[in-house]
Amino acid sequence: MKSAFIESRPFLLLSLLFGISYFFVRDSNIPGLYLMLWKGAGVGFLAVYALVRLHRIDGKIVGAIMALGAIGDMAIEYDQTMGAIAFLVGHILAILFYSRFRRHKLAFSQKLFVILLVPLSVLIAWTLPSDRADALGVAIYCLSVALMAAMAWTSRFTRYQVGAGAILFLVSDMLIFARMGPLETSMIPEMLVWPLYYFGQFMIATGIVRTLRHEMASESSDPVQA
């Protein structure tokens, strides 16, 4: 128990500290570079957490996915295209990762949900920007997020943590797209985008680590702390 606390809890606590506090300091007078690093630290410490808690290739992959998210969080403050590219690469890596952990059997309702999730998300995203020149790019980017969420939902990781976290990530991005159109003057995206995104990432990282560590424990018959 003590070893687990020393190895993992500080990184989760630091992630929560920076991830939650960023919401309250993002409009403050903190210099831009420090605020950018503050923003990236929330998900950045999730990357460290995954690397520390999973001593195998899966930990490196999950760490890389989270690290790309943190890079995207920071880069998007200065260049939206660079930030979007970092997130896009992270989504592709996540899709490939989840494909290795496919759930063998899905209920009809779960299959229907996934079948509808991707095309409906892309269609809605395409309709949102007021500037129609942005619509195609938004739809293409949304495709990567929706596919990531669909793959997470159909993976054998818990839907109530990893699957739900991926859906929160998707909803957060949909609100960003809505801010380009119908919710341009609304406070809803301002209030919800960051919390949905950050806690979605937190749920994904901790859910994957918990599942894989329990599997490792079952293989070795040793108790484990996630």
Rank of each mutant, 00 (worst) to 15 (best):
G42K: 06
S15L: 08
L212H: 10
A41H: 08
S8R: 14
V138L: 11
R159P: 04
S21M: 10
A135F: 09
M82R: 12
I30S: 04
V209F: 13
Y98N: 01
E7Y: 11
R132Q: 14
G40Q: 11
L128P: 03
Y49G: 01
E215P: 05
L37V: 01
E190P: 00
I65T: 04
A133N: 14
M187S: 14
P31L: 03
Y34P: 00
D58A: 12
L196C: 13
I30Q: 06
F199L: 10
M74Y: 10
R159G: 10
A64F: 07
L147R: 06
W126T: 03
A226I: 01
F18L: 02
A150I: 00
Y198T: 02
A84L: 15
G32M: 13
A133L: 13
L54H: 09
G181F: 10
T206A: 07
P223W: 14
P182M: 05
V62A: 09
F24G: 02
A178T: 02
A150P: 07
S121L: 07
V118S: 07
R56V: 01
L168H: 09
G207D: 09
S21A: 13
I167E: 10
A107W: 05
A70C: 08
S3H: 12
G63N: 06
M148I: 00
S28L: 06
T154A: 07
T211Y: 15
L192Y: 13
A64S: 13
I115V: 04
F101T: 00
S121R: 09
A50E: 10
M82E: 11
A75L: 15
L112H: 05
H104V: 03
V43Q: 13
S218H: 13
Y22M: 02
T127H: 09
I188Q: 03
F199N: 03
M174L: 15
A125D: 08
N29K: 09
F113D: 06
F24A: 06
K60W: 15
W38Y: 15
Y34H: 08
F169P: 04
A64H: 04
Q201K: 07
S8F: 13
G165I: 02
D27V: 01
W126F: 15
E184W: 06
R26E: 14
D173A: 10
L147P: 04
D173M: 09
H214I: 01
Y198P: 06
A86T: 02
P10E: 06
S99C: 03
M82K: 12
S218A: 15
D173V: 00
V224S: 14
S218M: 15
K2V: 07
E215H: 13
F45E: 02
T154I: 02
F97M: 05
V209E: 11
E190I: 00
A67D: 05
F24Q: 01
V52Q: 13
L116H: 12
F87Y: 15
M187F: 11
G181T: 03
L175D: 06
A166L: 12
A135L: 06
S220N: 08
I20R: 10
F18D: 03
P195E: 13
T158C: 04
M74R: 06
F202G: 12
V62W: 08
T158Q: 11
W153V: 00
G19L: 00
E215S: 08
L183A: 12
P129L: 01
L175V: 02
I188K: 04
D131W: 08
G42R: 10
P119A: 05
D27N: 11
L93K: 04
N29H: 12
L183T: 02
V118G: 12
G59E: 08
E219Y: 12
L33K: 05
L116S: 14
F113E: 05
A67R: 05
A146Y: 11
